[in-house]
Design a protein around this nucleic acid. Structure first.
Lengths: 109, 109
DNA sequence: TCAGCTATTCGGTGTTGCTAGGTAGAGGTA
DNA sequence: TACCTCTACCTAGCAACACCGAATAGCTGA
């Protein structure tokens, strides 16, 4: 996709990644691949790693280093309680925004 | 609301404003007030004006200066054909993103 | 005259995703 | 050995965007 998605991802990508982690723990490389499979075709790897560092520093996730058979050790992230709380807040905010936009879309027809 | 909304608005606020303009022409001050009424309580005025300048420079809107009875002349913006096309693209992108997030939300339960 | 509302503009800041590299481990091939 | 490929992570510099704070300007009513 294009620049539109890029701008929209600002603020939502974080929630997306946390939502993925709420399902099960995962590591950066894996998350990137998963997102690409799901249609976010041009997500940059660096973006995900930087994002994971940020959420870790904010204490939303726990990290565990796990050796890989195929390369350098993986940093496996898992959502902790604080992260789960934050994710709920994210969903509330998202619902608000999505509601407004839905309304605007209806009105515009 | 908080920082979450601020970050989410990046990329979507533009579409929101264009969607408002697709209903009828409007000027900056009016748009700001309307957004605040609709729940975007802490939208900064400066943000809207800057956004309007951007979309004007990209040729998505036409501008007309109209005298006001209550203050300085208003700059009334109206969506043109190019803007209408762009707005459709915006909705497509939004739908994609909203779909992905909806799916994630379901899965996370 | 001065406060208050309307209406627009601008400079500086922080956050965020992208670009474009680099580092490093393990396996396969010539 | 030398080289390539895949896995896996990291980093510096950049552009876009929303916010903050302040300034400017026109009009009205106390």
């Amino acid at each position: 996709m294009g620049k539109l998605v890029t701008e929209m991802l600002k603020g939502t990508l974080e929630g997306i990644v946390l939502a993925i982690l709420s399902g099960r723990p995962a590591y950066g490389y894996e998350i990137t691949a998963q997102l690409r499979d799901q249609g976010f075709s041009d997500i940059a790897e660096g973006t995900i790693y930087a994002l994971l560092v940020r959420v870790e520093q904010r204490g939303l996730v726990d990290v565990q280093k796990v050796p890989s058979e195929k390369g350098p050790p993986r940093k496996v992230y898992s959502l902790n309680d604080q992260g789960r709380e934050y994710l709920e807040e994210f969903w509330r905010t998202w619902s608000f925004l999505a509601g407004r936009l839905e309304q605007l879309r209806e009105g515009g027809k």
